[in-house]
């Protein structure tokens, strides 16, 4: 596959190129792919590998010319995770970084718009992390709020 040849490593996975790079190689890899026709940035995903204590960021790129999909994967430590921002390469990366910052708590150096995105007033653990228990949270917050019963004797 063209992208694997360009970067020099990686493997094919279900028809997609899956390339694992180190954090410091990432910017050059994206730049190189972009210059060689991989000009459609599809999305940026994050995966929380709780047992391995790692976050994995996956940059998806697509080339309209060779019709090839690349997944560039970067791993980092779960504690104090941070990455350099790539929003200068593709403008929509800014939005994805905002979301991942909010949902996983990863810092992106160089992104000036890491403001609250989907949630308002949120001050608990970032909800997409695997150690955040959504069901327990629901029980503690929403189920503990009382119903408002009407007093039968008083009437309205």
């Amino acid at each position: 596959m063209k992208s694997i040849e360009l970067i020099g490593k990686g493997k094919e996975m279900h028809g997609r190129a899956y390339i694992e790079v180190m954090p410091d190689e990432l910017e050059n890899a994206i730049k190189k792919l972009k210059e060689n026709g991989f000009n459609h940035f599809v999305m940026l995903s994050c995966i929380d590998w709780l047992e391995e204590e790692k976050f994995e960021l996956v940059y998806h790129l697509w080339s309209y010319e060779v019709k090839e999909h690349v997944m560039l994967s970067v791993r980092m430590n779960r504690n104090n995770a941070s990455m350099p921002s790539m929003s200068h390469l593709f403008p929509q990366i800014e939005t994805y970084e905002r979301e991942i910052h909010e949902m996983y708590g990863i810092e992106f150096d160089g992104n000036n718009r890491l403001t609250p995105f989907l949630l308002e007033n949120w001050h608990h653990a970032p909800p997409m992390r695997k150690d955040f228990d959504s069901e327990k949270f629901v029980g503690k917050l929403y189920e503990s709020i009382p119903f408002i019963e009407e007093d039968e004797n008083e009437g309205i």
Binding site: M13, H14, R16, V42, M43, V58, H60, H69
Partner: peptide, 20 residues
């Protein structure tokens, strides 16, 4: 186990699912 990405053309544009 594995990584898969599928895309379809919706009326709004390109819809993609990344499943791990």
């Amino acid at each position: 186990a594995g990584y898969a990405f599928a895309r379809v053309e919706s009326s709004k544009g390109e819809f993609g699912y990344f499943v791990v």
